[in-house]
């Protein structure tokens, strides 16, 4: 990890600056595209989180935390699971108890049963993507913080 005092690597910073938007755009593509082709929530989430990790490696931890604060991290990691579990519950609610948990077809996104299933799956994949992204970022921040603290301890 580069410290800020004079050790900044211009090449890495520039490349990271250019790459990160593309990495995250690609991650969104992987998540959204999961239904039609290769991809899905787990993979897309990890790719998205790798964008943050690249930012932290190229710049510094504090900057990364500023871009993705702890509060947002906490909320996003729960929100993904809320979407997944909530969509399952919506199926029960919208059918007044006739359909089972996670029976996406009964959630009235559209008028068509099979389309509802496909859309339900899309939302679920997005939920997975959000949770995986937030959790991977959170684990990385925690480990990196620990590392940085140890370095401070050695210096001081």
């Amino acid at each position: 990890m580069k410290e800020e005092q004079g050790e900044r690597d211009v090449i890495i910073e520039t490349v990271a600056r250019v790459m990160i938007p593309f990495i995250q755009l690609f991650a969104l593509y992987v998540i959204i595209h999961g239904a039609g082709g290769p991809g899905g929530g787990f993979q897309g989430g990890v790719v998205f989180a790798s964008g943050f990790i690249l930012y932290i490696i190229a710049f510094n931890l504090a900057g990364g935390r500023k871009r993705f604060p702890e509060s947002a991290n906490t909320i996003l990691s729960s929100v993904g699971l809320y979407i997944y579990a909530g969509i399952g519950l919506l199926a029960i609610l919208f059918s007044f108890g006739a359909a089972q948990y996670l029976n996406y077809g009964f959630i009235p996104f559209t008028s068509h049963f099979e389309e509802n299933r496909a859309l339900g799956m899309d939302f679920v994949e997005m939920g997975i993507g959000i949770t995986v992204m937030a959790i991977i970022a959170s684990i990385f921040f925690d480990l990196a913080e620990k590392d940085e603290k140890q370095k401070e301890g050695e210096d001081g």
């Binding site: 519950l89 108890g97 006739a98 948990y101």
Partner: peptide
């Protein structure tokens, strides 16, 4: 039509998960 009790096995698990988050 499923009765409410028949939904309970899955709700027991899901409520617990929702409560965790």
């Amino acid at each position: 039509m499923l009765s409410f009790v028949e939904h309970l096995p899955v709700l027991v698990v899901v409520i617990s998960l929702l409560s965790a988050i």
